[in-house]
């Protein structure tokens, strides 16, 4: 197996006002974080439909990071509060049906928190690396996976 060469491929849905700006700051401050993440900018964490998460996993991505403004900082006032409720049940359901919790991560990262963004991505990618490639939606599930 070429298991050793495998690199996690993950997607990050970041809100435009905080987390995306936070990731920008990480870049402009020349901080390093794993390049395994592909970032998709969304207006608000409230925009994230659980469908995005499931479809990303179904299409073979190894993990999904969702990040928005800290509670109280939402540009639209309450988007992240609503998102928080939605994510709480989404997470429970995904875990219940047998999706490894490491594959889906939620975080609050502010525009000023460049280092935190780097840290979150790093830890997330490490977590995904530990659980291995996403074979959940493959037709054959091998034993022990």
């Amino acid at each position: 197996m070429e298991e050793t060469k495998w690199e996690p491929k993950v997607v990050g849905f970041l809100c435009h006002w905080c987390s995306y700006a936070g990731a920008d700051l990480t870049g402009s401050a020349r901080m390093e974080y794993p390049h395994n993440i592909r970032i998709i900018r969304v207006p608000c964490s409230g925009r994230i439909d659980p469908m995005f998460i499931l479809r990303a996993l179904q299409n073979g991505l190894d993990g999904v990071l969702v990040s928005g403004c800290h509670p109280g900082d939402c540009h639209y006032q309450s988007g992240n509060f609503h998102a928080r409720r939605k994510f709480a049940v989404t997470r429970k359901l995904l875990e219940y049906v047998g999706i490894e919790p490491e594959r889906v991560q939620f975080s609050w990262v502010a525009a000023s928190e460049g280092p935190k963004m780097a840290q979150v991505v790093k830890e997330f990618v490490e977590g995904v690396r530990k659980v291995g490639p996403n074979r959940l939606f493959k037709d054959e599930i091998k034993d022990g996976e």
């Binding site: 109280g72 928080r84 409720r85 994510f87 709480a88 991560q105 939620f106 609050w108 830890e123």
Partner: peptide, 16 residues
């Protein structure tokens, strides 16, 4: 309805 509403104190220990 529960998802049109929120509390500031909603659980969030799962969010980094």
């Amino acid at each position: 309805p529960v998802f049109t509403h929120y509390e500031a104190t909603d659980p969030e220990e799962f969010i980094k």
